[in-house]
Each structure stands twice: as C-alpha cells, then as structure tokens.
C-alpha cells in the first residue's frame, strides 16, 4: 500500500516535470510543423533565456528577469527567423539541420566567451523556497508556481491557435501551404510570429529553470535532446500530442527512478523506441502531406 503511494507520488511529480519539458518542446514542434525546419538551435535560446534572466535579475530582481528575458530572446527570435530560418523552409531539410546545429555550437561558444565556462550562480527569492504538502503528496512550492505559468502559457497558445483568425491561417498552413498561398495569404509574417513565440517559450523555460538547475554554457545541448524526444513521441502537428508526450516522458522517468534509479535518464529513449515501433507517426501525429 505504501509502495503504491510512493509510486503515485512519482507519477504526480513526473506530471509537474512534464510541464517544464513542454515549455521547450511546444515551440520546437510548432516551428517544425509550420516551417518544416527542425530547429536544433532551440536549446541555445533556452540557454540564452537562462543567462539573460540571471543577468537582469542581478540588477532588477527575479521577477523582472523571468519576464524581460523571454521578451528579449523572443525579439532575437524575430531576427533569427528573418535572416536565417526563412531561407530554409523550402530547401533540403539537411541544410536547415546543418545551419541550426552550427548555430547551436556558435551560441554555446559565444555564451562561453561572454559569461565564461564557469556556471553562473542563480537563486530564487526565499518566499518561493520550501514545500507544500497536499494530501500526503510533497510538492516544491516553486514548481507549483512553474506549473501555473506553464498552464497559462499553454492556454494562451491553444486559444491563439484554435480561437483566432491567426490560428486558422497557421493550422491551414501546416496542412496546405499551397492552398493558403492560393487564397492570397502570405505565410511569412505568421511564421515570424510562430518562431518568436516558440523561441520565447524556450527562453521562459530557461529563465524559470535557472534557480533550480545549473546555469552553464552546455545547458542548451542538454535540453534539446529531451525536447526533440518529446516532439517525436507526441507526433508532428499535434498540439495535444506534444502535451501528452511531455507528461508521459516526465511520468515514465519518475516511475523508472522509483524502480531502477540508474536508468532514469535512459527511460525516455526506451519510451521513444516503443512508441515509434507501434506508431511511427508519434502518439497523436497527423498525416501532413508536405512531409510524406
């Protein structure tokens, strides 16, 4: 009975962690779905988000860092889309993989040159520290706050995609870019916005994770693998697929650590392998003509 409770606690904790994975993976998925580009530089924006937030927090406090840093990085995302990504939507996918991978390396080295290889210290305000016990479950107070932010962002993105004319064009663009063009709508400004939002979410993830994990130059490379696995498991073009996959990865990791702690970090790859065996398109992946 107690074992079951312990396991359940891991499941709930995994869901919370999944929310954080989601912040990074959702943008990666959106950029891929609309532009057909696997943005391997996505992790670099996550790292930048963390570094810029720490830098701002040093002068203006934690709150300002968490808000201003994603905004600043999102603006950088506009430049990224306008001058780099835009050239590769219709090109051979290998080219966009190479250019974004190269960019990730450049960004990591740039961070090392500006801030040094030594990690930056970052703390949260004391009021966020400590735990909350709900029922018998233990939660970190800070992570509950993180979860609330993720939920709000998720609701915002969902509304944007499903309840606005902007979202209608984007969703149509995922399935039938040629038809959208035939109707006289230019997809490019939409793509700019999608990249800006995606990159901003990654930066928000970095800013929010800075107080609880190490802020170091290679943090982007660490997160991009997880985010990519989540996108692949969830399936392309599916909003809820990514949500489901992020939660699943978090939960499976928690359960694995409960039974075989050493295999914790390997669990998501096993999960990806199993999902791809039975559903090559991912859990909720849609059939997208341009990728077939």
């Amino acid at each position: 009975m107690q074992q079951l409770f312990f396991l359940l606690e891991q499941v709930v904790n995994g869901l919370v962690l999944g929310g954080y994975y989601l912040l990074i993976a959702l943008g990666l998925s959106l950029i891929f779905s609309v532009g057909g580009v696997v943005n391997l530089a996505h992790g670099a924006f996550y790292a930048l988000g963390a570094y810029v937030s720490v830098e701002i927090a040093r002068h203006l406090g934690f709150g300002a860092g968490a808000v201003l840093s994603p905004v600043a990085v999102a603006l950088l995302g506009i430049l990224f889309e306008r001058f780099i990504l835009r050239r590769f939507y219709t090109a051979d996918p290998i080219l966009s993989l190479l250019v974004t991978f190269g960019l990730a390396l450049v960004a990591e080295q740039a961070i090392r040159m500006v801030w040094g290889a030594a990690p930056l210290p970052a703390s949260m305000p004391d009021s966020f520290k400590g735990n909350v016990v709900l029922g018998d479950f233990l939660f970190s107070r800070y992570r509950l706050f993180l979860l609330a932010v993720v939920a709000a962002v998720l609701a915002g993105i969902w509304t944007l995609l499903h309840k606005t004319s902007f979202g209608r064009v984007v969703r149509a663009g995922i399935q039938r870019p040629d038809m959208v063009a035939a109707l006289g709508i230019r997809l490019q400004p939409y793509m700019t916005t999608i990249v800006m939002l995606g990159v901003g979410m990654a930066a928000l993830g970095g800013a929010l994770f800075a107080p609880i994990a190490m802020v170091h130059p290679a943090m982007g490379a660490e997160i991009i693998t997880v985010a990519f696995v989540v996108v692949v498991i969830g399936g392309l073009g599916s909003f809820w697929g990514v949500v489901l996959a992020a939660m699943l990865v978090g939960v499976v990791r928690g359960i694995t650590i409960h039974f075989v702690p050493a295999a914790g970090e390997a669990s998501m790859y096993v999960l990806m392998f199993l999902v791809l065996m039975f559903r090559p398109r991912g859990l909720l992946g849609e059939r997208i003509e341009k990728f077939e």
Partner: peptide, 17 residues
Amino acid sequence: DELTATDTTDFSPFLLK
C-alpha cells in the same frame, strides 16, 4: 544508495525517495 546518471539535471524523483 541510489545511482544517478552523470547527465541528471532534475533530482526531484530522488528527493521524493
């Protein structure tokens, strides 16, 4: 005595244990 992979960034499952 629990083993953790060298690339572990999130320790929350271990903290629960």
